[in-house]
Design a binder for these strands. Structure first.
Lengths: 200, 200, 200, 200
DNA sequence: AATGAATGAGCTTTCATTCAT
DNA sequence: GATGAATGAAAGCTCATTCAT
């Protein structure tokens, strides 16, 4: 990418980032079209290629940016002293809702990244994704699994929760308006249920 | 579609069905390309359009076929007297593995259908999907939830299991070889865990 | 072409000739499609190419056949002793209507030949057309122009009549049913008018 | 169509209009191919679709444009005080020759429109054609038929003249070079002949 | 002889990318 | 820096022609 992108007014940067996130999140890497980004962002086609060599470059950048920003927001919202796994999880979901203030499609974009099936796209974002996963692990390392019954393998439980919250997120984006509070309530209800099942 | 498709040698029919399933499953409706189907099936481009008016028609047909075939295989493998929810679930997964004998990409295709985001594609397959879901409900109606603790809301548990098994399926397709037995073992391990957590 | 075409039952020959005439007449050389000929004739696609190497060959044959048949019918219907130009002309139009008994699209096909704009097609039929034009000249040679006023240049008058009758023919084919008698009446009314204008 | 087409340099607009006219005029709606337009205009394939949604849209536009331009040129060249039918007709032919200055294929295109047989094409241009026909009627309304003998039905005479001039136009386009003056002379000779025949 | 399944070149249309202004 | 006109490779689809049966 062209580093001068950062010299743009923050507002314009965000317009472009949001445009890219929205279109990539909704259509995936391959079917995301430049013209749609132009339409939703109001930024001319030429400029996209001025700052980002090509679609690959744009995708790499936006992914990197999104994941870095997500880490930041999550770090901010997660209580450093919290050790309850399920409380940590819901705090993270709240963090995602906070991201929407600046980047309304970021939560959906995060989900779309984990669902991306295009090989080229996957290889482009692998690195950023690993860094993000690492950071999430660091946040979750405080989680105290001692109250969880032996039967409940934390890795598996974790996966199930992840897949479930991702699906929930996608569902909410499909409705006319995304109601954050309602989403958080539903997410919490899942988490509480699992907690009650897995805790001794 | 052109009904004469059924007059083709079953072998050729299956070559085409498999080709379509594979490409649709991997790339989704929009990005699935005729040329790729030609490549993987060895059947010329013209023939696809000889039997199926267009991409829409092909997708509609393959989806209908796949779901009907899936229902058949599932009906065959599920023990009519089985009432244990988790046993029923694992039987269904075994059924999916059986489908691979004839249609190696069918399990992945089923997952891709539930993840399809393209509006046109969704409307094309809605009907077939509803029939499939109904049939699955009929199979699962024997399931006895009485041993499940009140805390475990069956709807939510069910969703979590579905999302998890779908994700697992996709993961296995990404590895070099799909090892059915290994998949079934892992699927079972998830189901056993959830069973032990949710049963009184 | 394959001479064995003539060994086919006359009925089948005519089915094919009619099919080709109809489609060529309606859509012109380039846009006439094999599939449409198959549809209207009921004769399988393979057979067309068995008897006629390709579209070119078929067009050349059908044109030759049509023009030869037209000459025959015209010769039969035109009164050898008639010398009045306008009576000869209407006799020829009646001859064309007679052709419809066996080849319903032949009159339209004749018009389409004179309107054909495709270079390849034109060169294919040039020879047959010349022979036909010659024969028409021979028929018309008996025409007595002595009653026509000097002002009326016969060549020009002839051209105008030709173009007009061709347009009339096309119009009649566009209506739901071709009413031969009505066509002949209208054609005659044009001819009578011109006669009254050009005769001293 | 994309209104920005009008922002292009007039020269380029005309290159495209001329390219489309030429190919549509020569091959008709269906067989006119983008690639041929690219070849004769030197304008890339993509651009055609940038300005015109599809072939339909292009045809509709070019027809509308051509007919509007024709009306303009005809209005300019026709003497408002002229009442002689035949003088008006030859003035219109002169008008058509004038059109060739900017749009060399416009006279042929006008003829091709009246000969177009493709149903879709016909319905696309119907409206524009009606407006054009109306305008021609307005121009011709001044024509004084009082000197024409009762025997000469003006409707029929008119049709014959139209068909004849159209055929003449096509003939001239088929020769290596279109010689306007020669065409006008020949057109005039037809008109004078008919005048002398029909006037009392 | 007869069929129609099978093919691939060519057509219309889309879209990432380039480039003159 | 900013624009959007311009490009061409590739996608979906058609159709004359071939060929196994």
């Amino acid at each position: 990418m062209n580093e001068k992108f950062y010299d743009l007014k923050k507002e314009k940067q965000d317009k472009m980032i949001n445009g890219a996130m929205q279109i990539f999140a909704r259509y995936g890497y391959r079917h995301a079209s430049t013209d749609e980004m132009v339409k939703v962002s109001g930024v001319s086609k030429g400029l996209w290629f001025h700052y980002f060599e090509n679609k690959k470059g744009l995708y790499t950048f936006v992914t990197g940016y999104a994941l870095k920003y997500a880490i930041l927001e999550l770090s901010m919202v997660v209580d450093a002293k919290e050790t309850d796994y399920f409380k940590l999880m819901i705090q993270m979901e709240r963090g995602k809702m906070n991201m929407m203030e600046k980047y309304p499609f970021l939560p959906l974009f995060l989900v779309s990244l984990s669902k991306e099936r295009d090989e080229e796209a996957i290889s482009l974002i692998q690195e950023a994704r690993e860094r993000y996963d690492e950071r999430i692990s660091e946040i979750m390392i405080k989680a105290d699994y001692s109250k969880i019954r032996a039967k409940a393998e934390t890795g598996k439980v974790n996966k199930m929760i992840t897949y479930t919250l991702e699906a929930l997120t996608q569902e909410y984006y499909e409705s006319a308006i995304f109601r954050k509070e309602q989403y958080l309530e539903e997410a919490d209800s899942y988490l509480q249920m699992i907690k009650s099942l897995t805790y001794r």
